[in-house]
Amino acid sequence: MTPIAPTKPRSFLEQVEAGTPGDSRLSMCIQCGTCGGSCPSAEDMDYSPRQIFAMIRADMKDRVLRSNSPWYCVSCYYCTIRCPQEVHITDIMYTLKHMAIEADLYRDSAAPDLSNTFVSYVENNGRSFEFGLATRHYLKHQPLNLVGAAAMGLEMFSKGRMDWRPEKIKQTKQLRAILKRAKAIEASQKMEAVA
């Protein structure tokens, strides 16, 4: 009988690295703080990017995924180009976002909802749909700002910069088949990683 190698569940650091394409270089972080100092929204984050990376190494998965930090990332890539260790910080923030959605830990649902609503329009039509996205989002998350948003929306309509109906690509079936297959592959890869 062949001995079964002892398996250790993957650390949070390993999970984040595996979830980021290419070499994320996350383990190379030297905690210098250049990322947080370069970040336009760091002061509004629960934890600066540097703190997030320290917490990832400390395996504090819940607190990282509960924080608003990845969602307040504006994808400006300042941290990424300034990082002396060339850590792919913006890509890591994307990884943390879908891990947070999956773990369903982030308490304020506005940001994940925006992403999910955007995705549902793309999956159904092949194109994004600003009017639908804005309406659904404001109704649920910023009802008090709905009047102001509607006024802006009307002006956008009157200037031909918004449409009531979504655009649709021709091959929606093909696109859905590709996305369905991609989701299945991703799910099976995660199963393998856990096994």
């Binding site: 994808s75 879908h98 992403s115 955007f118 995705v119 092949g126 994004s128 996305l179 297959r181 592959i185």
Partner: peptide
């Protein structure tokens, strides 16, 4: 011909592989 949305910064926040497949 028949290009689809690039996913902006939102699709990749929800899922990785589907965003790259898109």
């Amino acid at each position: 011909d028949d290009w689809n949305c690039c996913g902006a910064t939102e699709y990749i926040s929800v899922a990785r592989l589907p965003a790259y497949a898109l």
